[in-house]
């Protein structure tokens, strides 16, 4: 491969990597906020994204709802669904047995229920395409070609992340969330309502997944199995150290760029292996992740 072509591939890979990476970053963010506050890796995150995508498809295409109504409604449905799962199911699971393993199994159960439900509705039978809301005319940046849609995806994702970081860092609700992550008992003592915070966090995580679904759906064919994109979200979270929010975002962009570069330079078939190899590579080179400090063992 000559230098000229390599340079072109590099630019194109970074440009498209930033776009898909922004979606992985959102997904990783949704995973990490739940993990930070409840130590549960949510294995249903991918299916929450998939289900939200189908809700949007239903409202937008089959009900012919206008965009300004369909998008907020999808986000509200995702928020309510995730919050309800936390409030009704996980509260009872924690009550029945304190073991974290049981909570994880419940999220695996949710992922299968959502996948099965979407298949039952009949929408999931054939791959469907989600209409793009922004034109797909391409623009050249340097030598890389990106579409207007790509720029809209990246822009929206960055705005959502900025809004979330502001909420998490500077509002009373965000402070309460951080305190629950640090020490739930102490947080409760100073008047934080644990149940409400956990429910809100699950809701927010669902809403972020819904936004990620709205962003990524026009770029791929929707199937009931599209939730498997979560593996990349997990990989991004691990790159970032799994407990760090900025780490999750940076991890998402790194995974996106690496994925695109592997696709361009090696083979598009090798992309399936990328998440596993990325996880293993991080575990070999820097197991604490880019932004992770030391992991402290919780006292008994």
């Amino acid at each position: 491969m000559d230098l000229q072509l390599a340079l072109l591939f590099l630019q194109q890979g970074v440009a498209s990597g930033l776009v898909v990476g922004s979606v992985y970053a959102l997904l990783a963010l949704a995973i990490v906020i739940i993990f930070r506050t409840s130590e549960v890796p949510n294995f249903a995150q991918g299916e929450m994204l998939m289900a939200a995508g189908y809700v949007a498809l239903y409202l937008f295409v089959f009900r012919a709802m206008p965009v300004w109504a369909a998008i907020p409604m999808t986000i509200v449905v995702a928020f309510a669904g995730a919050a309800l799962f936390r409030r009704v199911v996980l509260t009872q699971v924690a009550h029945a047995s304190g073991s974290p393993v049981n909570l994880v199994i419940a999220t695996l159960g949710l992922s299968y229920v959502l996948k099965g439900l979407v298949r039952q509705t009949g929408f999931g039978d054939t791959p469907r395409s989600f209409p793009a809301l922004v034109s797909t005319d391409s623009i050249m940046i340097g030598q890389a070609s990106v579409t207007r849609l790509d720029l809209a995806i990246l822009g929206t994702a960055v705005i959502v992340m900025a809004a979330f970081f502001w909420m998490f860092g500077y509002t009373k609700l965000g402070r309460a969330m951080r305190s629950v992550g640090m020490n739930p008992k102490a947080a409760q003592l100073v008047g934080v309502n644990l149940n409400r915070i956990h429910t809100t966090i699950w809701g927010l995580s669902g809403a972020i997944s819904a936004i990620a679904a709205l962003l990524i759906s026009p770029k791929l064919l929707m199937t009931a199995d599209m939730g498997s994109v979560v593996t990349l979200g997990f990989a991004a979270a691990i790159v970032g150290g799994f407990a760090s929010l900025p780490g999750a975002v940076v991890g998402g962009f790194i995974i996106g760029i690496v994925e695109q570069l592997v696709g361009l330079f090696v083979s598009s078939r090798a992309i399936t292996l990328a998440p596993f190899l990325a996880i293993m590579l991080v575990l070999i080179l820097r197991p604490q992740g880019l932004f992770g400090g030391r992991v402290v063992i919780k006292k008994v």
Binding site: V89, Q92, A106, L108, V113, G116, R119
Partner: peptide, 15 residues
Amino acid sequence: YQEIIYGLILIIFMM
């Protein structure tokens, strides 16, 4: 129905 049933069993048993 397989997926829904497996998933529901996991959730209900854990609950």
